[in-house]
Nucleic acid binder design. Structure first.
Lengths: 152, 152
DNA sequence: TTGAGTGCAAAGTGTTTGCATGATC
DNA sequence: GATCATGCAAACACTTTGCACTCAA
């Protein structure tokens, strides 16, 4: 169901009829190495540290490809900026994002599944997915900025 | 805490040092009349039905002003499009969005509050807000497109 | 009267697309 | 070697900003 290694992801790409170019490998590697959600621009920066001949456009295209294959998880941390994280087991997770440093902690909860069932039966909706995201300050950032009020 | 009438919103704007122009009244009214999340463009369209001399820019500026005063609730239905809904009591709510027609159903749940407390104590985060959003198909859209798989 | 608010057009974002070149299978 | 992928630049959609004019207080 979900891949457990970088190599398996590449295998899936090939199985899906995509070519394994060095650029794609690099993008997958960058995503694989990061355990935080990244914007396409951040992925691009990371990729370029390894090899400079990768265009931002290719990063976008590769991410889109991965998203279509459901291999990455997309969230919009701020509404105008999408970030991506490789899906790894355990499968379904939610996010707790630090509003100061951007750190993302994943968590799972069956409260959410229960709520989903309740909603489905109450509204008649056929629920396909959900976004559950908490925003706050991680311990480190709380200590660092005790007085600041908003970190927009 | 939360305003219960259009007039109270205008009062808050004035109290916050903003002038009550006809354009602003029109934007507030459009938001007030709608019980669905709207994009700035949709708000603009609605406003223009009443008076044509309101620019899209003004809608953006007014919405931003309302957002800064925390009088509207912003969500990004799709990641690249923000929608707004006037905050009305009961205060905190979540969303169930139809992926086909875009209809938004609000709901409240104390499961979410409970989960938030659990997370705070487990991770040490000081949680400031959360986004809980379910996406699915409403009853009407389920009937309309029984065979279709994706609606993008 | 006067500073805040407006509309227009232009500039900024982040993202996608057209096209010729280049690489994978 | 045919096809798919790349990179560049240009196009896009949404949002913000600069500026002269206008209006609410």
């Amino acid at each position: 169901m979900a891949q457990t290694s970088e190599r398996e992801i590449l295998k899936k790409l090939r199985a899906d009829g995509h070519k394994l170019t060095p650029q794609r490998r690099a993008v997958v590697r960058a995503l694989w190495l990061s355990h935080r959600h990244m914007t396409p621009a951040q992925v691009h920066t990371a990729v370029c540290e390894e090899r400079e001949d990768v265009g931002l456009v290719t990063v976008y295209r590769t991410i889109r490809m991965l998203a279509e294959m459901d291999l990455v998880c997309e969230i919009s941390t701020d509404g105008h900026q999408r970030t991506y994280l490789l899906r790894r087991p355990p499968e379904h997770h939610h996010h707790l994002v630090c509003s100061v440093c951007g750190r993302v902690v994943d968590f799972t909860s069956n409260d959410v599944e229960r709520l989903q069932q309740r909603l489905a039966s109450e509204t008649g909706f056929s629920i396909e997915s959900h976004i559950v995201e908490f925003v706050g300050r991680c311990v480190a950032c709380q200590q660092r900025c005790q007085t600041t009020d908003t970190a927009h």
